[in-house]
Design a protein around this nucleic acid. Structure first.
Length: 818
RNA sequence: GCCAGUGUGGUGGAAUUGGUAGACACGCCGGAUUCAAAAUCCGGUUCCUUUGCGGGAGUGACGGUUCGAGCCCGUCCACUGGUACCA
């Protein structure tokens, strides 16, 4: 019987066994070491895509391996079910977002089961269920009462044709992706979470995350962007002073203009008097809001005609209105020093604004003919501060400005507060009631959850619940007067910021979390795409600290170890429906079976690296699975003729010993590759090598059969995390009674690994010239004699003096000659 | 633009702590088996040079450190992710 003909049956039987025996259902057990392995929850887009297959195959290998080490392993799964794609699908296919989402979940769940992933399905959750989101509403109300949330105006992308707010992704070259209309900036009131209150802790906490990749920690550190500087006030006659933040107060005497945002009150005031200014402001209203667009667009400005006073010199400083300064971030104004900042330099050149060089390099003198001098140096043209270095000038200018009340030292973070309001239908309703008399009042705890109506018509023009009076009409919880509910919903990052905690007690309907959270948390291994390196992971860390400060969990950080999976690319880019470059793994599962697909995706590249998708090689993975299947079946029929004897390692011949050595070496490597290195591709390569050696090992004597039996059993166990169906099937077929899912990882026989001889590489001046075989840990002297006697060494050192001989034990010898 | 990452044969990749570059596969070439094919098995496969042994070059580009660099440092190029409303 070929594997091909059997694969469907083999996989279904194994899956049925796991389901019937609840093999992956876990309960808290203080007598066992816990291991919480979590993969990022999927967005139910319709079908499993290849990135999911990669992510969840990695998670399943780690989980099954840890389970084989005897740990109490929790591996849950759920659905990140709210989000924009459901709304897009709703418009396109004229189906309600809820129905579309639930259908997708149902189908994708079947696919996950068919892949053989060992999840504890009793903990499954979907973030669009009121039983889930009620607790984040509850938590939001707690944070509201604690003063950790607030309302603030912010700009959004407004599509004037579709009458809707667009995501940055939906704006293409300044136009709405559906309507094609030119997008306008619109200011609306939104809810914010005070993540900046936790900026310092989020930054410092990174140092403790030893199990996180440095790249992610550095990105988060840069994102938080702590900087020390001065807040400086430029006074104005008849108006409030303009406050700016700078990390370079040493350049203050070189400030020749101030740039303010187009939405700045001063700019708006001047616009009313001056049509040139007004048209510039209008132009700025159609700018894209993303940071990338902002930084790469042409820097433009217009002279406001206003002046403020330089805080030290008292001279007039002109105020310009510039498109690269944003009202929402910082103070909406920046101090410009063209001589020492490249952007200011280009702006000043363009508009003929004067420059004053105030920093000279420590060697040579200042030259700003071609570009700004942005490095630190000595102050010049700065009166009493001349000759000072950066730290000296920082302190002196800080002191001076503090004394005259025009400045103070300030720590600034690049990190901004988290805007959580979305003007969308398919999301968790924000549990706030807006009352004319009382303002924003949180919904009473007893009235939670605020349930999102799922049966509303959805056309994509405006938000559906905003048009649904039965949803928004209500009474104020404080005064009882008629009032309106918030019709905005939460950012979907809200749901994904705490789901990992909810899995630990998903059936708890009296509280957000219970004591079980403290048994399982923090997550021991978190696995997900590198694209989440900043936002999701930062928000999840933030939420953990909020939960801790509310006394709901005890840990400080949610994820002890993080594996960031590389993206699966197609045609050099992230796969997406809109690009039409997706790969459907279902076809591969149907053709080759789940085990082949799992093996291949893990073998194709190391997990952290981006993977350019190609079907080439899938056949090879399948060939290996087939080959191993045949090997085991061949052993079974051989053993009917000649049974294996009890293995006695000391009585084996040389060839038998070699096979045992290879077997235990492979076992050691696979354990290390899976358990420590997360290098699944090399683990599989090692197993392929062992398989090749075993298929050439034709010894059918009782001793030979014993060696083969041991090797096959070890291979089955070592393959179990990767190809669990095949291991389950063959384990029973070779005569074992217990199921593979309950077996433990095999012990390495260190005796079998002992080597007597070793091959040394011989180099002359770093070039490979010979190879010699010597006893392990041979004496230095005897190696030197052997090396210098080598024909090729003699040839290449002829007429030269041997300077020294470098010996790397059991590896290499380098003869240095001159 | 900024932050982070990546770059090795025809292809995916290996080289774990600075020590044999190309493990393991895919593909291709040759052979065995077969009436034939599929499947399977065996051999070869970085480039140049050499009958062979061997020799030379080679890890995006250029430079540096070192007895020795794919790995460390500097400059640059290309590509990927993120860039706060895709998830």
């Amino acid at each position: 019987m070929q594997y091909e003909d059997n694969v469907k049956k083999i996989e279904e039987e194994a899956q049925q066994y796991w389901a019937e025996n609840n093999s992956f259902g876990v309960v808290e057990d203080k007598t066992k070491e816990k291991y919480y392995c979590l993969s990022m929850l999927p967005y139910p887009s319709g079908k499993l895509h290849i990135g999911h297959v990669r992510n969840y195959s990695i998670g399943d290998v780690v989980s099954r391996y840890q389970k084989m080490l005897g740990k109490n392993v929790l591996q849950p799964i759920g659905w990140d079910a709210f989000g924009l794609p459901a709304e897009n699908a709703a418009i396109q296919n004229k189906v309600p977002p809820a129905g579309w989402t639930y259908n997708n979940i149902e189908h994708m769940k079947e696919q996950l089961i068919a892949m053989g992933f060992g999840y504890d399905w009793s903990r499954e959750l979907a973030t669009c269920h009121p039983e889930y989101y009620r607790w984040e509403q509850w938590f939001f109300v707690r944070l509201f009462k604690k003063g950790l949330v607030y309302k603030k105006k912010a700009v959004v992308n407004w599509d004037p044709v579709d009458q809707t707010v667009l995501a940055n992704e939906q704006v293409e070259e300044g136009r709405g992706w559906r309507s094609g209309a030119i997008i306008e900036k619109k200011e609306i009131s939104q809810w914010y979470m005070k993540i900046t209150d936790y900026a310092e802790e989020l930054l410092n906490g990174l140092d403790k995350l030893e199990g996180w990749p440095d790249a992610v920690k550095i990105m988060q550190q840069n994102w938080i962007g702590k900087s020390v500087g001065l807040e400086i006030n430029f006074t104005m006659e008849g108006s409030k002073p303009i406050s700016v933040f700078t990390t370079r107060p040493d350049t203050l005497m070189g400030a020749t203009y101030l740039a303010i945002a187009a939405e700045h009150p001063l700019a708006l005031k001047m616009g009313k008097k001056n049509s040139v200014i007004q048209s510039f402001i209008n132009e700025c209203r159609t700018m894209e809001t993303s940071e990338a667009a902002l930084e790469t667009m042409e820097k433009k400005g217009v002279d406001s005609g206003l002046f403020c006073k330089h805080p030290i010199s008292g001279e007039d400083v002109p105020i310009w209105i510039a498109n690269f300064v944003l009202m929402g971030y910082g103070t909406g104004a920046v101090m410009s020093v063209p001589a020492h900042d490249q952007r200011d330099y280009e702006f000043a050149k363009k508009y003929n604004i004067s420059m004053v060089g105030v920093i000279a390099p420590s060697n040579g003198h200042l030259d700003i003919d071609q570009e700004a001098f942005v490095e630190k140096g000595f102050l010049i043209n700065s009166g009493e501060f001349n000759g000072m270095t950066f730290p000296e000038a920082f302190e002196a200018i800080s002191k001076h400005l503090t004394n005259i009340g025009l400045g103070k030292e300030k720590i600034n973070y690049r990190l901004r507060d988290w805007g959580v309001s979305r003007q969308r239908y398919w999301g968790c309703p924000i549990p706030i009631i807006n009352c004319e008399h009382c303002g924003s009042v949180p919904v009473k705890e007893s009235d939670l959850p605020v349930v999102l109506p799922e049966d509303v018509a959805f056309e994509g023009v405006g938000s559906s619940i905003k048009k649904s009076p039965e949803f928004y009409q209500t009474n104020c919880p404080a005064c009882g007067a008629a009032a309106e509910r918030e019709a905005d919903t939460f950012d979907t990052f809200f749901e994904s910021s705490w789901y990992f905690a909810r899995y630990t007690c998903a059936n708890q309907n009296k509280a957000m979390l219970d004591e079980r959270a403290n048994y399982w948390l923090p997550v021991d291994q978190y696995i997900g795409g590198i694209e989440h390196a900043i936002l999701h992971l930062l928000y999840a860390r933030f939420f953990t600290k909020l939960l801790r400060d509310e006394g709901i969990v005890t840990c400080d950080e949610p994820f002890t170890n993080l594996l960031t999976q590389g993206m699966v690319l197609k045609d050099g880019a992230k796969m997406s429906k809109s690009k039409g470059n997706t790969v459907d793994p279902q076809k591969m599962i149907d053709k080759y079976g789940a085990d082949t697909v799992r093996l291949f995706i893990l073998f194709a590249s190391p997990p952290t690296q981006a993977l350019e998708w190609s079907d080439q090689g899938l056949e090879g993975a399948h060939r290996f699975v087939n080959k191993f299947y045949r090997l085991v079946n061949c052993y079974i029929s051989e053993s009917k003729k000649q049974a294996a004897e009890q293995l006695n390692p000391t009585l084996l011949n040389k060839e038998q010993k070699e096979i045992r050595k290879k077997t235990h070496f492979t076992l050691k490597k696979v354990g290390d590759d899976i358990g420590r290195r997360y290098s699944f591709n090399t683990a599989i390569a090692a197993l392929m090598e062992l398989n090749n050696s075993l298929s050439r090992f034709t010894d059918t004597t009782p001793k030979g059969m014993a060696v083969k039996k041991e090797a096959i059993e070890i291979m089955l166990k070592a393959l179990n995390p990767i190809t669990p169906h095949l291991s389950h099937h063959l384990w029973l077929k070779i005569g074992n009674t217990g199921a593979m899912v309950d077996t433990l990882w095999p012990e390495i026989d260190v005796e079998a690994l002992i080597q007597e001889e070793v091959r040394l590489v011989v180099q002359v001046n770093g070039k490979l010239r010979a190879k010699i075989v010597v006893p392990v840990d041979a004496e230095k002297k005897s190696i030197e004699i052997a090396v210098l006697a080598e024909e090729n060494v003699v040839k290449f050192s002829k007429g030269k003096e041997v300077k020294k001989i470098i010996i790397v034990p059991n590896k290499l010898v380098n003869v240095v000659v001159r």
